[in-house]
Each structure stands twice: as C-alpha cells, then as structure tokens.
C-alpha cells in the first residue's frame, strides 16, 4: 500500500536501536549527554561552528555575510531540536551538521544560482568595462568565473554533493551520510557532475 517514494532520498532501513552506552563516543556522547543537560550541546557548537560557517559563507558568497550567519545559527538550532534522533553509533557529527546546513542553504538556491551566473558572465570575452572592473575587484576572494560557470551548470543536488566533497572535505561516505543518499548514488552522481563540469570548462577555454 505504500505509495511512491523519491528514489534517491531513501536508504535501506537501518536498525533503530541505540547502541550500548559504552559504544557512544565523541560527538555522539556530547549529544547524548545534552539530552539530559541541554547546555552540553554548546560543546558541539564550539567545536564546529567556525567550520560550518566557513562552508556556508563560501556557498553564499561574500555579499551575503548575514545570511551565512543566519544559516549557521539555524543549522545548530535545528541540530539541537533534532538531537534526540541523532544516530549515536556515529561518533562524528560533522556529516549530520553539514546535511542540515545543506538543507538550509538550499533555501537560498535561487540566489546562489543567480550569483554564480553573474560571476560566470565575467568570464565572457566581450564583457563590458564595468564587468571587467568587477573581475578585478571580485577575483581576489571570490570564485573564479570559469569555475562559477561550472557550478552554475549543475543541478541543486549535484552542486550540493560536489561542494560537500570539494569544499567541506567530506569523504564520499560522509557525504552519503550527510545527504542521506546511498554510496552508489554518491559515486554515480559525482562522476556525472565531474563530466558536466569538464564539459563546461572545456567550452570556455
């Protein structure tokens, strides 16, 4: 009787049992203790807030600093609310946090694409002088136009996975955990993504 479920987002059901206390280590232990003592959760913030903020800030760009602040804050708020559901057999909470950050970044999807396209246009040879000036201004900190064009060509899901690996340095396995997609999908999506990027970069050079 179950209706259709989106294929890529489901994973085989894993046993929902909570491991014995002895096995709960690392971040999982902090999260477990925060159930009884919510203040402990700040420990997780202290450990990862800067890293998550860096990733969000790269994704949203230098002109959206306050949005990056908000997304980071909301990531940890969401994590705090959902901490009871954390899979405590996983000592490293980074994939979980990145997954939530990715979800929140997705709300800025349209803005992100607009921005990437604008950056990409700077690579066009006949860009007007204003845009040429912008190149110089922008290139010091921001993504190079050609690379922006590559990212702009990707779907939201492709970009999300690709950047978790390239910019957040997640392993394939961690990315699979973060996005809740199977390893097979991670591999195939990444190879498709790389091919797309190769094509775009090839065209532009």
């Amino acid at each position: 009787m179950r209706g259709p479920i989106p294929d890529e987002t489901t994973r085989p059901v894993v046993s929902a049992t909570i491991p014995a206390a002895a096995q709960v280590t690392g971040d999982a232990l902090v999260i477990q203790e925060s159930l009884a003592d919510p203040e402990r959760f700040a420990g997780l913030f202290d450990r990862y807030a800067d890293e998550i903020h860096r990733y969000v800030s790269r994704r949203l760009g230098p002109e959206s600093v306050s949005a990056a602040d908000d997304v980071t804050a909301e990531t940890f708020l969401a994590a705090f609310r959902k901490r009871a559901r954390y899979d405590r057999s996983r000592p490293d909470a980074r994939p979980w946090l990145y997954g939530m950050a990715a979800n929140l970044i997705a709300k800025h999807h349209r803005g992100e694409v607009r921005r990437l396209r604008a950056l990409a246009r700077l690579a066009e040879p006949d860009g007007d002088s204003f845009e040429q000036r912008s190149v110089e201004r922008v290139s010091a900190r921001d993504l190079r136009p050609r690379l922006a064009a590559g990212l702009a060509a990707l779907s939201r899901k492709e970009r999300e996975l690709f950047l978790l690996v390239a910019w957040a340095d997640l392993t394939y396995e961690q990315a699979s955990e973060a996005l809740g997609i199977p390893m097979g999908t991670v591999r195939s999506r990444l190879s498709r993504t790389r091919a797309k990027i190769r094509r775009v970069l090839g065209e532009e050079s």
Partner: peptide, 30 residues
C-alpha cells in the same frame, strides 16, 4: 586534473565569522 581537486585548490575565501554573530548564535542556541 580531477575536477574535485581543481575546485578544492580554488576554494573561494570564506568571510570571517563575526564574533558578535557567533556569540549570538551560541546564546540563541542556549
């Protein structure tokens, strides 16, 4: 060159996390 490495090497700069915003996020959490 692997596209992943290319993007990794060309990572754009990240804006610094404003200490005020950071503290406010931490206390909002609390």
């Amino acid at each position: 060159m692997n596209e992943i490495d290319l993007y990794r090497d060309e990572r754009p700069g990240a804006e610094p996390y404003d200490p005020g915003a950071r503290a406010s996020a931490r206390s909002r959490l609390a």
